[in-house]
């Protein structure tokens, strides 16, 4: 399948999941999963920087528009920040641990350690930005911190699962 078409399809499915399911579903009132991040984090490494962050901006904006119970523009801001850090972060991670596979579906063949050290900090950056912007003040900082920690864990595990499901699906074909 065409790589563009494939990615658009993945994004559409994840957007639906995000908007219809995960936006209305929070564990203990603090943990909300942002599953559509899996799409951004799976984008090929060969994409040039401007295109990459434009995609991030557009995806964030779309989620913003379709999410009803969340402040507008926050996803766009945090997605752009996260994706602008991604390529630098990949370089840093790769110097420590060997990079396997190709740049297109680069996550598929990586060892677990590489995988975790790639995903976790980027998701954390996104979640910190997101919840700080949502609160927009340091008044109830304890609650914001709880939201950041638990949502990061929740999002991380879901993104991990989603990427694995997607790669397994495409491996079978």
């Amino acid at each position: 399948m065409n790589i563009w078409l494939r990615n658009i399809l993945i994004f559409a499915v994840l957007l639906l999941f995000q908007v219809l399911v995960f936006d209305h579903f929070s564990l203990f009132g603090v943990a909300t999963a942002h599953i559509f991040l899996a799409f951004l984090l799976m984008l090929p490494l060969s994409l040039r920087f401007p295109i990459l962050i434009l995609i991030a901006f557009g995806a964030g904006l779309l989620v913003d528009i379709f999410s009803t119970n969340q402040a507008q523009g926050i996803q766009a801001f945090s997605c752009v920040l996260m994706m602008s850090l991604r390529n630098f972060w990949v370089e840093i991670v790769t110097t420590r641990q060997a990079f396997k596979g190709n740049e297109e579906s680069f996550l598929r063949f990586q060892p677990v350690q590489w995988y975790v050290s790639y995903l976790a900090p980027l998701i954390l950056v996104h979640q910190i930005t997101f919840y700080l912007l949502e609160a927009f003040s340091l008044q109830h900082f304890g609650l914001t911190l709880l939201k950041i920690i638990f949502s990061s864990l929740f999002t991380f595990s879901l993104v991990l699962g989603t990427t694995m499901v997607i790669y397994n699906q495409s491996a079978r074909k």
Partner: peptide, 10 residues
């Protein structure tokens, strides 16, 4: 530019 736009939206 993108960050400023999204901040303005927020």
């Amino acid at each position: 530019g993108l960050e400023v736009i999204s901040f303005a939206l927020i």
